[in-house]
Amino acid sequence: MDVRAKVIEIIAEQAMLEPGDVTPQHTLSDLGIDSLGLVESIFAIEEAFDISVPFNANNPEDSSFDISSVEAIIGAVEGLIKDQS
């Protein structure tokens, strides 16, 4: 599976955008994804890649899972797939 394309697809679906409208530089807030949308996206990522994402909604900034941009999320997912395969 193309991890990059799948992550963008998940984020785009959450943002109610076309995948082509989501760029790696976008932050989640740029895309209008709030805290509930983030939790739902992480769930979708876990289901899509069969991984467990370490993320606590209480302190998203302190989480080892980097959500600072779409690119960062793709990198974090690639890392988790590698670590957990």
Binding site: V39, I42, F43, F55, N56, A57, N58, N59
Partner: peptide, 20 residues
């Protein structure tokens, strides 16, 4: 668990290191 607002270790209200 799904909401990811639960702590896995303790309930620490008002403490800066609270985690759910």
């Amino acid at each position: 668990e799904g909401l990811r607002v639960m702590s896995r270790d303790a309930c620490r209200p008002f403490s800066a290191n609270r985690n759910g």
